[in-house]
Design a protein around this nucleic acid. Structure first.
Length: 657
RNA sequence: GCGCCCAUAGCUCAGCUGGAUAGAGCAACAGCCUCCGAAGCUGUAGGUCGCAUGUUCGAAUCAUGCUGGGCGCACCA
């Protein structure tokens, strides 16, 4: 935070100076770390920009800027370099000592109420790696937003009345001829992975529809019964959805992903959220019923007038079908209104499960119940992030436009679609999964996963593979002299596997399609989560060894008060401190741009600098106590920064590696 | 057809609101474990930043137009 403050003060000083010396108002001022450390710690090309307006050589302007300039705390000097850059250097010693006391301190809580909706997997089959990208992006965003002081509520929306659930119900009833009791028996059967079973069943059903088009009538009937909560069919849908959601929650928990609330579509229907939203939309004239044409009888939202939707061949979006049923977008508009507290009704709640720390994961309910009184206040946030892949960009725009048409343009502005590209499979991976790859697909870089075809890598399968590989690495890496229990190997294996997976999903820009390849996902070297863990464990080991050898690191709170650095830090040491100081800025930039890869990339750079330092500058064997102290401070800065930052990524620091 | 996204080293990607000599990882090659544990480190090699024009003191970054690829544009979600 200190570094950001210095940047702020310096920016202010420079702007004021430009105004008083040259009468120039500088709107935006670039002030960033120069490309090489020799050029100082912060630099601005502002004189180059001013040169045009002032018709003076940039260096001359720079020299006038510098002459007699007052500098903020910790800024030691300013020089003019290159074509006319202003380069600032920090007082390395005093900065390091002050920085150490405040590394990665979270912002004070009490900020804005924010809802992040993510995961949102159809509860009809096992989660796959595409869902993992969603959940990991969402969860990491949540962690960063909280660290920045926001009060965040995490929602995982459950579409328990949709076509996908209906299709599995159809398969159980018509393909297998089973009823609710038999489905419940399958769920209770410990030898069966119910979500895996449904994965296969769902793709069989899709195939059946294709071979026997008449069977689509089953889907229509089933969908209707589910939506109207009729009989055994609706019961079965609820039973299936609940069991699968439970499994999804367990899968995500393996990665450290937790939620606050599971809003269910069935409750949105039962509690007539849509009816209310529909009234509002009709009142505002933003939806009309078509009397003729191909949409005759439908209620549509007219989008032709909005600049956002310019050029669309079909500028109208159907919200209510001619048979009177509401589309998904309609329900989503109602849900989005509720999130902002703009719908004059709300849910009932009941606990779905309890996490190991006692925190309750709530689900919505359609009726009052004894536990409802204990539920916290949900919804009514000031800002909403919907983590949904880019293919739904158009629908998310429609939802946003719905808010705007209802006069809630502020909320529309504060609705953010956190979009990201899909996870696809390389042809090699698809083949490895036993999927026939068509000849025309062979030359492609990647193939889209398909739930209907059963083509995809299941989340738990990938995790299992990662865990066993990590455990194996622990086992072989430990050597014989060390006693490691199987239990500890298990723990370490999971921690390392999760690090590899979370980092893998975060390190790519969100607009990049990830062509999933087992080899790359299983990599523990180089630009990877385990690399960061390893570097941190190394730092921890240094201090553990120090304690064991009775060497006082002199880094406790008391010693730090009187700590002096002595000689200034050399470049290799200082670079670590400066990168550490830049980390909060990296978190902020990552959240502002929704590019979480900014953070992983920054931390990787920090890790590299540390590993390099680790080899070059031994600490325990350094004879000079002052030099040893300087190096220890550096290692301490690193481990505190990395430990706190890994927490933001949902990555644990293992006890050993 | 219209809209959005992508194109940077052999492969996978960084490159922050335009700024100083375009950087990593993997793969390749050459080194480093009696020395805080080699999941590591050091070095070598590898680039017409898809193409063209333009804006600018300055363009991988901005604008326009191309080329190639992906995704959307359902009374599915």
């Amino acid at each position: 935070m200190m570094f950001e403050q210095i940047i702020e003060e310096l920016t202010e000083i420079l702007k004021t100076r430009a105004l008083s010396l040259f009468g120039q108002v500088v709107e935006r001022l670039v002030l960033q770390s120069p490309p090489r450390l020799a050029m100082g710690d912060l630099a601005t090309p502002m004189a180059l920009e001013l040169a045009r307006a002032l018709k003076q050589p940039p260096r001359k302007i720079a020299e006038r800027m510098v002459d007699g300039m007052a500098l903020p705390n910790f800024v030691q000097s300013v020089t003019v370099e290159g074509a006319g850059y202003l380069n600032f250097r920090l007082d390395r010693g005093s900065f390091t000592i002050s920085h150490l006391a405040a590394i990665m301190a979270p912002a004070l809580s009490g900020g804005e109420r924010v809802i992040v909706e993510h995961t949102n997997i159809n509860p009809n089959k096992a989660a796959h790696i595409g869902h993992l990208r969603n959940a990991i992006l969402g969860d990491t965003l949540v962690r960063c937003l909280r660290w920045l002081g926001n009060r965040v509520e995490t929602q995982n929306y459950i579409d328990d009345t949709g076509v996908q659930v209906a299709d599995v119900v159809v398969a159980f009833e018509h393909l297998l001829g089973e009823g609710v009791a038999q489905v419940e028996a399958r769920i209770a059967d410990p030898s069966l992975r119910f979500d895996y079973f449904c994965w296969d069943l769902y793709s069989k059903m899709a195939q059946y529809y294709q071979d026997t088009p008449n069977s689509l009538e089953w889907r229509r009937e089933t969908l209707h019964r589910i939506e109207h909560q009729e009989g055994q069919t609706a019961k079965m849908a609820a039973v299936i959805a609940r069991a699968i959601v439970g499994q999804h929650i367990r899968t995500m928990l393996r990665l450290g992903v937790e939620y606050d609330l599971l809003p269910k579509e069935s409750d949105i229907i039962t509690l007539h959220f849509w009816d209310r939203a529909f009234e509002l939309l009709k009142q505002s004239d933003s939806v009309i019923q078509e009397k003729e044409g191909k949409h005759a009888g439908c209620w549509v939202m007219k989008l032709a007038d909005s600049a956002e939707f310019e050029g669309l061949e079909e500028p109208d979006k159907i919200l209510v079908r001619s048979n009177g049923t509401v589309t998904y977008v309609g329900k989503d508009i109602a849900y989005q209104l509720w999130k902002f507290g703009l719908l004059d009704r709300t849910f009932f709640y009941r606990p779905f499960t309890r996490y190991s720390d006692g925190r309750v994961l709530w689900e919505t309910a359609s009726h009052d119940n004894p536990e409802n009184v204990d539920a916290p206040h949900f919804g009514g946030a000031g800002r909403v992030f919907n983590v949904i892949d880019v293919r739904q960009a158009y629908l998310q725009k429609v939802v946003k436009e719905g808010l705007r048409l209802l006069g809630h343009s502020r909320e529309a502005e504060r609705s953010t679609h956190f979009s990201y590209e899909m996870v696809a499979l390389t042809p090699a991976t698809a083949r490895a999964l036993g999927m026939p790859v068509r000849e025309e697909d062979e030359s492609k870089n990647y193939l889209e996963m398909s739930g209907r075809k059963g083509l995809g890598v299941k989340a738990d399968d990938l995790l299992d593979a990662l865990v066993s590989k990590a455990a194996e690495a622990v086992r072989t890496g430990m050597g014989e002299e060390r006693e490691v229990s199987e239990e500890e190997i298990g723990t370490l294996g999971v921690q390392i596997a999760v690090a590899a997976l979370r980092y893998f999903m975060l390190k790519y820009g969100r607009n990049k399609v990830i062509a999933f390849d087992f080899g790359e996902a299983l990599a523990f070297e180089g630009d990877s989560g385990p690399y960061l863990q390893y570097s941190t464990v190394r730092a921890d080991n240094i201090f553990r060894k120090m304690a064991a050898r009775q060497v006082d690191a002199r880094l406790d709170a008391h010693s730090l008060n009187g700590l002096t650095i002595g000689k200034p830090l050399g470049d290799d040491l200082w670079e670590i401190v400066r990168l550490s100081a830049e980390t909060p800025g990296a978190v902020r930039r990552a959240v502002d741009s929704l590019e979480l890869s900014i953070l992983t990339h920054h931390l990787f750079e920090l890790g590299q600098k540390f590993n390099s330092f680790y080899h070059k500058y031994p600490i325990l064997n350094e004879p000079d106590p002052d030099e040893r102290q300087r190096r220890a401070v550096c290692a301490e800065v690193f481990r505190r920064t990395m430990t706190a930052s890994l927490e933001l990524l949902g990555i644990a620091v293992p006890a050993r590696m």
